[in-house]
Amino acid sequence: MQHGKYRFIVGFLAVPLGLYALFVIWPFVQSIYYSFTDWTGLSPEFSMVGFDNYSRMLDDDIFWKSLWHSVLFALLVPLVTLGLALFFSFMINVGGRKRKGGPVITGVRGSGLYKIVYFFPQVLSIAIVALLFQFAYNPDSGAINSLLRGVGLDSLQPLWLGDPDIALWCVMAVLVWSTVGFFVVLFSAGMASIPAELYEAALLDGASRFTTFFKVTLPLLWDTVQSGWVYMGILALGAESFAVVQIMTTGPGGPDYSTTVMVLYVYQKAFRDGQAAYATTIGVALLVVTLAFAALVMKLGRRERLEY
């Protein structure tokens, strides 16, 4: 077994690792280095300033607001998304009426159609989704308020993105809307491969369908749920929250900093204010938050693997 092992290992790792080190690690190492400088991003000159950027960050109210919102994004968006997705896929796969002579557990009629329709938002890039919802949230002639007026709720005309109390929730809802479908398809696939005997056994034991969800479905899907959580949380901390906040919100990041997130703040400092060094400092903080998030999920999620 050992023959040529190291040669093999090196041979297999060299190219991926090389590519990764070159295009990912090295630029990031440089970025971290810049967080100790006063680099503006607009000229090659800079000098070292030690921990100035870091102490400035700790005193920066906007930074703390954006940190808090980012944490909310990483925790709530995956929670709601995966929760909904589990619920829907359970409905699709297990919610069907028992037909005479059919299997104990069936999907609802038209389950295939649901899986297609639910996946729709996933084929749109998040930027397009944000753009669509910006129209929908328009308080004056937007789709949602028009609809509310249409059903006689004239008194209920929220400002949506214009109201600091609900703007953040509006933005999160868009992320949930656009990603639930993907996980429905993923989880449905997982549920479909759970042997029906397991359900049957549970039902025979007198379990209701809902308890079978917690006794059978969830434990067997746990690994998928967990990687989904990490994947979704990282997206919600990074690229996706940037796109929705940047495109949809007041300012962007408002009203009154109620929706600003770390990744937006990085962008604004680097590409608007000419403070690239400070931007990288916030980026380093974002890195720490993301790593902590991933570690937390992996730790909480660790449990005995079920074999059957």
């Binding site: 004056d140 002639s141 214009g162 009203p255």
Partner: peptide
Amino acid sequence: LKGTPGLDHIQSQTA
């Protein structure tokens, strides 16, 4: 105009 705080520039100009 009602709803103004939620309008962007294009939407307010259109209204």
